[in-house]
């Protein structure tokens, strides 16, 4: 974008040429996205044809999605709720699990990042637990918590804490030696070091970790709710499959994807804001 703005001709230009210019910018920005979307929809349509009706067409899905979105918050008892209610239920669990996860991961990562012996001690534990499939934790949560939705939150906590833990550890480990030296020479207290040096220095890495954790949490929720049932987008997908409505499944997939994208963008926006602020912008 920045380079494009530099291209604005410096000689006098009328309102018309400037409007043309902006139309061109908008076209240049949007056209690749539109073309990409058209390709996706085209492939989807072809897949629907080849599968001889097993897969719903984009148009059938669009009309189902329209119906779902026209009344997102209706509630006709436990097995028939609007898509908005399901989305909010999923988001609630995701944020609870992710929040608990990062509340564990950030302090632990700060400790690990500051202590090489602790890192050596816990690295094997982390490397063993990290690749475990989210769903493997679900029965454990169920056994301890005796509650299916809470067990899903438990699985999210366990699986979403790793990226934040690893990134926080790395961020703290990579604090420039000069800044550590400054804190020692000027005899900063532990609290002053953590609040004025460690946290701001590691913040970009922590934010990246939080973003990756959120991505994982959002992936786990759908699978978890398929197992847990009751409410949520995962339950909605499984319920729609049982009702043999693949249009609803596809609609849910679109909603899941777009929500995931929005969450991710939220974090990158936050990251850019913080970086600009740290360097003195606003």
């Amino acid at each position: 974008m920045a380079q494009m703005i530099d291209v604005i001709p410096r000689r006098e230009h009328s309102a018309l040429t400037s409007m043309r210019y902006w139309l061109k910018i908008i076209w240049q920005t949007l056209s690749p996205i539109v073309i990409g979307m058209l390709i996706l929809i085209g492939l989807w349509q072809v897949a629907a044809w080849i599968s001889a009706g097993a897969l719903p067409t984009p148009f059938a899905t669009a009309s189902t999605l329209g119906e779902l979105l026209s009344d997102p918050f209706y509630d006709n008892g436990p097995n028939d709720k609007g898509i908005g209610i399901q989305l909010l239920a999923s988001l609630g669990r995701v944020f609870t699990g992710w929040g608990i996860g990062i509340a564990i991961a950030i302090p632990l990562g700060m400790l690990l990042g500051s202590s090489a012996p602790l890192r050596k001690m816990l690295a094997p534990v982390i490397e063993i637990l990290r690749p475990v499939s989210p769903l493997a934790w679900y029965p454990l949560g169920l056994a301890v918590l005796h509650n299916a939705p809470k067990a899903v939150v438990f699985a999210i906590v366990i699986t979403s804490l790793w990226p934040t833990l690893v990134n926080t550890t790395m961020g703290v480990q990579n604090i420039p030696a000069d800044l550590k030296a400054v804190s020692k020479v000027f005899r900063f207290s532990r609290w002053r070091y953590v609040s004025k040096v460690l946290l701001p220095a590691a913040f970009p890495a922590i934010l990246t970790g939080m973003r990756l954790s959120m991505g994982i949490a959002w992936m786990v929720i759908v699978a978890g709710e398929m197992l847990a049932g009751g409410t949520g987008l995962g339950f909605f997908v499984w319920d729609s499959w049982n009702a043999l409505s693949l249009e609803r499944v596809m609609s849910a997939i679109l909603i899941i994807g777009i929500t995931g994208l929005c969450l991710d963008r939220l974090f990158s926006l936050l990251g850019q804001r913080m970086a600009a602020w740290q360097e003195g912008g606003h």
Binding site: P176, D178, L179, A181, V182, K184, V185, R187, V197, Q278
Partner: peptide, 20 residues
């Protein structure tokens, strides 16, 4: 034995805290 503000230091690359 340890760093002390009695021997304050100025570093080549300034070592200011960029967020302050």
């Amino acid at each position: 034995e340890a760093p002390s503000p009695e021997r304050a230091m100025v570093f080549q690359h300034y070592s200011l805290l960029p967020w302050l």
